[in-house]
């Protein structure tokens, strides 16, 4: 494993920890999109079907379990926890997320590395992850006051994407056989979606003012 990949996994982990910290300690999920969280839970469920079939490493197994458990518990908190769910910004979280699941599934059936159940689910999870952030970005844009933790959550998620691209570039040169065009292209699309957010995040951080996205 190279340093970019490890740093990418760690920023991904930090983003989840930041979000859980906000939900668990402040008992608030204000500004967090339930739609995005549901999509992530679906992404991990579809991708980690190989969890009990293919053993890669202890690190790999533990991280998969962490991402599965954290994504489902965030969804649980936002839907069922009696205090947390009251802070959910339902009126602004209106992205029709169900409508992006089906196109991703169709795309996975058409473009995959192998036409088997697990490979199609893997491709589906990659496509879905690429667009899963959209409801969150839409919600951020509609929210007047983006609190620091929510901003940091999205920032760390975006950092994870950038680091994964650097990891692929590194792997391309060091492991020529390792080429997964599906994840690379979808990963680049996903990272581009963050570009706008990153721009405003860095500006607000540089000027030391509260993050606010233009309408």
């Amino acid at each position: 494993m190279n340093l970019f990949r490890l740093a990418g996994d760690m920023t991904h982990l930090v983003s989840v920890v930041v979000l859980l910290l906000k939900i668990h300690t402040i008992k608030s999920c204000a500004g967090v999109s339930l739609k995005t969280q549901e999509l992530y839970a679906l992404v991990f469920a579809a991708r980690y079907l190989d969890l009990f079939v293919h053993f890669v490493s202890l690190y790999n197994t533990v991280m998969k379990l962490v991402f599965l458990a954290s994504s489902f518990s965030i969804v649980w908190y936002m839907r069922k926890h009696k205090i947390v769910r009251r802070t959910y910004d339902r009126e602004h979280d209106t992205f029709r997320h169900h409508f992006i699941v089906l196109p991703c599934l169709v795309l996975a059936l058409l473009i995959n590395e192998r036409f088997t159940f697990r490979e199609v689910m893997w491709a589906f999870s990659i496509y879905l992850e690429a667009v899963a952030i959209l409801p969150q970005l839409v919600l951020l844009q509609r929210t007047r006051n983006i609190d620091n933790l929510t901003g940091q959550y999205v920032f760390f998620l975006g950092a994870y994407r950038v680091l994964y691209i650097l990891n692929w570039i590194y792997r391309y040169f060091t492991e020529p056989h390792f080429v997964h065009w599906i994840s690379w292209i979808a990963g680049i699309v996903q990272t581009v979606l963050y570009a706008d957010f990153f721009y405003y995040y860095i500006i607000s951080w540089k000027n030391n003012v509260k993050l606010e996205l233009p309408a």
Partner: peptide, 10 residues
């Protein structure tokens, strides 16, 4: 047989 063991990323 090329299996999907090469999917070692998260």
């Amino acid at each position: 047989e090329h299996e999907q063991y090469d999917k070692d990323e998260l």
